[in-house]
Amino acid sequence: MLITGAGGGIGRAIVELAVERGHSVIAHDLKPGSLADLRGVETITGDLTSKDHLRLLGRRVADEPLEAVVASHGIAGAVALADVDERRSRAILTINASTVPALFEAVREPLTRSHGTYVAVSSQASLRAERENAVYCASKWAVTGWVRAMAAGQAEGPTVRALCPGRTETPLFVAATEAIAAAQGQTVEAYNKDIHDLIPLRRFATTRETASLALYLATQPRGAAPTVVANSGGEVPF
């Protein structure tokens, strides 16, 4: 199983859970050093926006019995339209959206041979409109739309699915929460309570909960799990 974004909160949790459950894992991330403390996995670092790196990655897994690829890499992108700049919007769209079908092409052959599954970790932001988050929404709507069309159009080849997580307690999410609360002159507790009130379950997802659903989607045979699943605590009914 190849898992990208493995240095980050959700990706790392997927790797750890996959290892715990006995899967053979290749963990991928952009940043050298971000995978140094992962145990029991092969690690690869590189830039998924680079065609050369995708070719290398494809060659590495070409002869593997690849049961699944979980594309959980990505970057945050909350920005108001007035503050959008070309460089930032291109980065958000390229990393969050363009790399998803590009990675799929790089691993399509071994995944097809193994009757494997390609899981794109999208977002609850792909299921609704969000203010001051339009670029990120554009990137995630693209991913979920692409997954749906791929699933509908190919009877052969890898199974393709999307996971749409809600607010998950990753280190980046916690840091962002603290920054927003401070900017609004609130305590983190008061800010979180306001956000919890938007979520029927009144809490954020743990990384393990989100990882668990990703692994479920990655390991179910075609027809045994939906193409798109939300994990939002009810914040975005789907």
Partner: peptide, 18 residues
């Protein structure tokens, strides 16, 4: 029928509606 075309339309919907 083209996933890239679907993604293109959906991405603009995500942008404009947001």
């Amino acid at each position: 029928a083209n996933p890239d075309a679907v993604a293109a339309v959906e991405s603009v919907r995500g942008a404009v509606l947001s």
